[in-house]
Design a binder for these strands. Sequence first.
DNA 1: ATATAGTATATAGATGATCGATATATGCTA
DNA 2: TAGCATATATCGATCATCTATATACTATAT
Lengths: 115, 115
Amino acid sequence: MAINKSLLTGSTTMLILKLLEIHDMYGYQMIEQLAARSNHTFSLKAGTLYPLLHTLEQQGMLTSYEDQADSTRVRKYYSLTKKGRGMLAEKQDEWRKYTSAVNQVLQGGANLAAL
Amino acid sequence: MAINKSLLTGSTTMLILKLLEIHDMYGYQMIEQLAARSNHTFSLKAGTLYPLLHTLEQQGMLTSYEDQADSTRVRKYYSLTKKGRGMLAEKQDEWRKYTSAVNQVLQGGANLAAL
DNA sequence: ATATAGTATATAGATGATCGATATATGCTA
DNA sequence: TAGCATATATCGATCATCTATATACTATAT
């Protein structure tokens, strides 16, 4: 698939970067937020999220710190880096291109070329 | 991912069913059509398509027949069954739900719930 | 005539994203 | 103090897709 072998399978990364765009969050919170903001269409699994967060941190897209904040419990917060913001922009662009291409096919195709 | 573990990863099936909605096609033609109708965003690989066609035929979504048609060459044409049309309708519905959920998250979320 | 490129179908093995299962530990509430 | 929600983490399995490879036929150029 030209654009990106995996997208949605791949949109997961975009979605969690997006969540961090406005303010820092900890893992469990991202799972809840994603469910809430998508009207429970998504239920991202912990087994998917945590390894992904570790990978993104290694790639320099995120940084993490522990904080007790307004909770009694220490949580691990993630923060989007400049590089991460760049990645988010790219992913969003890909997402737009990909969905518009699919929608074009669903509408019978823009280029009704030959056939 | 609630709706369907794989979608786009999974949209491929929807796209080829969609191609067959109007008239029968052979494999190679589907690859070309998909590229043309998506402005070359998609380049479905033969190694992905043929096994998929075989699976869909086994599931009763498609039937196939060989025909020389207006070519000098015998080609294997695929035809969408009633069951296949049902599957297409379902997949399109899923696609709409999924993309609107992603777009909701990208727009900051419909349910700006708590956070 | 013959090499090359495009058409057409097919399969096997590799890769990579996500999930389910499982583990651990803490905090809240009945 | 038992049970449930919160919170993070890892491992193995699954599944869709890709790359590579194979085969064979057709058309075109040399």
